[in-house]
């Protein structure tokens, strides 16, 4: 057997062995748990700092602009910012730009309000505090007081109450979303007369206080497609709404021009960006522990190392085997 043949055999290995390799590498670190530190970058810090400055008088949008396909990356970003906002009592409007994305919004709420999630928030349905609302109790702190006076008790482990219509409004999907953004620069209520749960938005205290995008302080678009640009083109360029990007890693490098030109205040890129936000939340005592994105970073490290090794080994086999001589084109690069 000649030397060339060994290299050729190596390169023609059944790729299911490689599949197995990547599978093993992505499972094992979960059980060893190195917990390697993640250093934060200014791209993510600027979003965190901006949200941290806001309070119950302000309001933000979180737009769920991703499908299930990229939820592993986009969901932790949206969830992290949502928990940050709830901690600071910032009202959150939630939207989705496509029918499938509507489902992701609901899934995010399910996660944050679920008692099995560490550091969850106890959700109060819009209908359940109707009497208080009609009695004119709409300020966050007096609302909590009145609500607890009615005999409601915060469940163990919950970080706080969130009142639908006061702390969040699940607006959901509306078609031709770029036009919806344009329309919301005038009035949110005309674009969303009812929310995803069928509640009348006009009755919501947070909509009465923040009637249009002009009275909103930021929009985060957690996006798996080019739709994130709509927020820049239709809200930022039209009336100056600060925009924050949460992008999948595949998209992240393409949007640096927007960041540098000052069209967005910051950007989270991929799982790493989400992990950075989780680290910031935990370091500042906003969440009791880091979440899924941070826990995935060990695996990410291991898998990157494996792939780099594979590239190096493959190239060695390729050049040592002399395959490069075969296919070279004159006009080629």
């Amino acid at each position: 057997m000649s030397a060339v043949n060994i290299w050729e055999k190596m390169l023609n290995i059944d790729r299911r062995w490689i599949f197995l390799g990547i599978g093993v590498v992505s499972i094992v670190p979960f059980f060893i748990n190195f917990g390697m530190p993640v250093r934060t970058t200014r791209e993510v810090e600027s979003i965190y700092d901006y949200v941290d400055e806001l309070g119950s008088d302000n309001a933000i949008f979180i737009s769920f602009d991703f499908a299930p396909g990229t939820s592993a990356e986009n969901m932790p970003m949206a969830v992290a910012v949502m928990r940050h906002a709830f901690y600071n009592d910032i009202p959150v409007f939630m939207t989705a730009n496509y029918p499938l994305h509507h489902g992701m919004m609901l899934a995010a709420m399910e996660y944050v309000f679920n008692p099995t999630t560490e550091g969850f928030y106890e959700d109060v349905d819009f209908e359940d505090w109707k009497d208080l609302r009609e009695a004119g109790v709409t300020g966050k702190y007096e609302l909590i007081e009145a609500w607890e006076n009615q005999g409601n008790q915060l469940p163990e482990g919950a970080l706080g109450w969130v009142f639908e219509g006061r702390d969040y409004a699940a607006l959901g999907y509306a078609p031709v979303f770029n036009l919806v953004i344009l329309g919301m620069t005038v009035s949110i209520e005309t674009q969303y007369p009812v929310d995803a749960h069928g509640n009348s938005t006009g009755e919501m205290p947070m909509l009465q206080e923040h009637k249009s995008l002009r009275e909103v302080d930021m929009a985060l678009t957690s996006s798996g497609s080019g739709a994130c640009v709509w927020w820049v083109t239709y809200a930022r360029e039209k009336m100056g709404l600060p925009i924050a990007f949460g992008l999948t890693a595949v998209m992240a490098t393409d949007y640096f021009p927007y960041l540098q030109a000052g069209q967005v205040i910051g950007q989270m890129g991929g799982l790493r960006g989400a992990a950075e936000y989780e680290v910031l939340l935990t370091e500042n005592g906003i969440t009791p522990s880091t979440d899924k994105a941070f826990r995935g970073m060990d695996v990410q490290s291991a898998a990157h190392i494996l792939i780099i090794l594979l590239i190096i080994m493959g190239n060695i086999a390729f050049f040592a085997g002399g395959f490069h001589k075969k296919t070279l084109l004159k006009g080629g690069r």
């Binding site: 990547i22 992505s26 499972i27 979960f30 396909g69 990229t70 939820s71 592993a72 990356e73 999948t248 890693a249 595949v250 992240a252 490098t253 393409d254 890129g269 991929g270 799982l271 790493r272 899924k292 826990r295 995935g296 695996v299 990410q300 898998a303 990157h304 792939i307």
Partner: peptide, 26 residues
């Protein structure tokens, strides 16, 4: 060089999606 960055981030993104599924299964 710009494409190199895209390449690196694309690899990272695909791995992240796999991580999401493994977290789901395990």
């Amino acid at each position: 060089v710009g494409f190199g960055a895209t390449f690196g981030f694309t690899v990272m993104g695909r791995i992240s999606l796999l991580i999401g599924r493994i977290q789901y299964l395990l």
